[in-house]
């Protein structure tokens, strides 16, 4: 609960990480594809050569085959849908709550100081510690997933919003005031855009964490979704399907991350972290 606690979330002062240039984009993509191909070959070879028993690690082709085959069944997509539902709803609730509270408390320094110690206490509590509570309250209902997702994501975004709100340039603020912008207009035209880069960072972190937690909740509590499918596949000893589901989760994670990046790039066209590409 010391001051240093607040820094461990790693607020990137001023910004999301810099990105590669699009010019080298093609080379990069090729390199990435080659990397994946090498990885798959290795995965294929290890069980085939008997280095690891294929009871523990089925070869890549088998796993991908199972995945392709399952991808034609509605049950698989229902699980994906449930997972995404928990992910999106949880993230949305956390986002809305964090933005509203962050902006409100950011504007009320005294209230913020009053709540800081509580926030510093609640924030490090791992969401998974709430699993028994979730089960107690909601059983295997989707609300159990939501509880975990919202709890973890809320703090990630909330802290970023507080950093963002505090980062408003005094000269920009004074300019707005001298041109007669009222409180709401200043929030809309000055505070909000200043906070956006922080908010996007928070959102990017939270989007990944939300996926992790919705899978965790499904796996451990048994709320519907990919995690629950994994648990079922495991208990019925369908090893290849377990792997197939893990791969599916990975793909989902990659897609989500790409989506957030695209959003970030659009929303922050004007920001230093994106600018280079816009002008290059």
């Amino acid at each position: 609960m010391t001051k240093t606690d607040t820094t461990d979330a790693g607020p990137p002062p001023g910004a999301p990480a810099p990105r590669g240039r699009t010019r080298s984009g093609l080379g990069r993509a090729l390199l990435g594809a080659a990397g994946i191909a090498a990885f798959l070959t290795l995965w294929e070879a290890v069980p085939r050569l008997g280095l690891v028993s294929d009871r523990y690690l089925p070869p890549a082709t088998e796993v991908l085959g199972v995945l392709a085959q399952r991808a034609t069944t509605p049950g698989f997509w229902a699980a994906v849908g449930d997972t995404l539902h928990g992910w999106a709803l949880g993230l949305a609730i956390a986002f809305a709550a964090a933005v509203v509270l962050g902006f409100t408390l950011g504007a009320l320094p005294r209230v913020r100081a009053f709540t800081t110690s509580t926030v510093d206490f609640l924030r490090p509590i791992p969401s998974v510690a709430l699993i028994p509570l979730a089960v107690l309250l909601y059983g295997t209902d989707i609300r159990s997933t939501l509880l975990l997702v919202v709890y973890a994501c809320f703090w990630l975004i909330y802290i970023q919003v507080l950093y963002g709100v505090a980062d408003v340039d005094p000269v920009a603020e004074q300019t707005a005031r001298s041109y007669g912008l009222g409180r709401l207009a200043r929030i809309r035209y000055v505070v909000w855009p200043t906070t956006l880069p922080y908010l996007m960072t928070g959102l990017r972190l939270a989007a990944a964490v939300a996926l992790i937690l919705s899978i965790t909740a499904q796996l451990i509590i048994g709320t519907p979704g990919i995690g629950q499918e994994i648990a079922i596949a495991q208990s019925s000893n369908a090893v290849a399907y377990v792997y197939a589901l893990i791969v599916a989760t990975g793909i989902l994670g990659v897609l989500i991350n790409m989506g957030v990046r695209v959003l970030e790039r659009r929303v922050l066209r004007w920001h230093t972290s994106v600018r280079g590409e816009a002008t290059a």
Binding site: D169, V171, Q174, T175, S178, V190, P193, W270, H271
Partner: peptide
């Protein structure tokens, strides 16, 4: 008012 710190006084967004 035209501020001395003209760069920071314009809204980058």
């Amino acid at each position: 008012v035209v501020f001395q710190e003209y760069g920071r006084s314009l809204f980058a967004w």
